[in-house]
Nucleic acid binder design. Structure first.
Lengths: 220, 220
DNA sequence: CGGCAAACGGACGGGGTGCTCCACTTAAGC
DNA sequence: GCTTAAGTGGAGCACCCCGTCCGTTTGCCG
């Protein structure tokens, strides 16, 4: 059971770090996870460092930019999101899969204030992060296609309407607290009902052009 | 026709100001109107002063708090909003009145980035501002009642859902530009369709408790 | 044990914002 | 005109945030 103690116990981004450095790295990630969840993505770096019990320099040495920290923190949340969509695709009922996927994604957004922002931000340098997101988007589009084919989702629904919904929920959730959860649930319920097929009203405006539907991270 | 030139030409908050002071006051209000519309309610005070061509001290002497400036700037926009609701009540078709009211309010929000924030913020000291808003809310509730009575608006719609919608549109509109307008229109179309009667789905979550549906201005 | 490089953390300069103080300017009444 | 007080604008202070520099500490290896 007892492996060689001298080899770094885990490989990854912190493969050949000194023991204390690796320890601090973990503490930073934990602190950042908490901070992003409760205070949003633009929490001061110093607050993260303080919560982690390290100096600011240590934080910046390990994660030169806020982006790199965000990518690292939300990597697994993103894969969790992707697997949620996968699970929804496994549902034999396309419409139920569609609705539960949306509801669960919104639940994630509600549980972690930074999640939606991280999800809607593009990090051109973080290739595997982008790959995971692209995968999730592709699977969601498939979910949409299936739900339309089954005749339960209106034909003029656009996969990009997911970010519309996420942004809308975000607007309802900015002032955290008791009301945020209820507001989010009610808004999602409203939107899901209008996503359902059977609406004859023309839904006038087409979705916005996509080239920047996720703002390029530099825009704040 | 020619009145006494020595009496201040307009009565109001700037009744007995010196001529130059009154002039500057107008310039400040104009600059603030522009700034709030394009950059939102939390534009730096210095930016407003610069745009108005006055010093910061002048701005602060005339409007001791940002709130007082906001109240003054959005007073007429608020009455315009209220009269929009009044017009909607005059429409013989309750449902059309309801939808056009919502669409026009959202158009105002789109045209002025600070409008929604001002509308959803409460200013306990500005009594007439609050009166106007209360009036608008009462009239909107009447609009809702009529639309329900006509059988076109779902029975479980709550007047407070208007702020839900405003916040949602706000979330979609934060990154201004081309896409914001289209996103807003599409979101409003979605929501209006789910507001329409005929939805049998239970709309699970009740609206959030109202005591603070408009955050008390001190919370930012 | 001893030395070295990695790691650390606080201090620091730079930029931005809110709000105030104060010496100067100017409109307004006699 | 001249006095006077209202009015003005910019300097200044306090605070917050970012990102870096540098003197000190400490893990690791021989």
């Amino acid at each position: 059971m007892q492996a060689d103690l001298r080899v770094p116990p885990q490989d990854g981004p912190d493969a050949d770090l000194r023991a204390d450095a690796r320890h601090n790295r973990e503490r930073i990630l934990g602190a950042a996870r908490e901070a992003f969840a409760t205070r949003g993505l633009d929490v001061p770096m110093a607050a993260i460092a303080r919560r982690a019990g390290v100096g600011v320099a240590t934080l910046y040495r390990r994660f030169p930019s806020r982006e790199s920290l965000v990518v690292e923190v939300f990597a697994d949340q993103l894969t969790a999101c992707a697997s949620t969509v996968d699970d929804a695709l496994a549902d034999p009922d396309p419409w139920r899969g569609f609705t539960t996927a949306i509801e669960e994604i919104c639940a994630m957004q509600l549980a972690d204030r930074g999640f939606a922002a991280a999800f809607m931000t593009t990090f051109p340098t973080a290739t595997d992060y982008e790959h995971t997101r692209a995968h999730a988007e592709r699977r969601f589009a498939e979910l949409v296609r299936r739900a339309k084919e089954a005749g339960r989702l209106r034909a003029d629904f656009d996969p990009a309407d997911l970010v519309l919904l996420l942004k809308a929920v975000c607007g309802v959730t900015v002032d955290a607290g008791e009301a945020a959860a209820a507001s989010s649930r009610r808004l999602v319920a409203y939107l899901l009902q209008s996503f359902e097929a059977g609406h004859t009203a023309p839904l006038p405006p087409p979705p916005p052009l996509d080239l920047g539907h996720l703002h390029p991270a530099a825009s704040h």
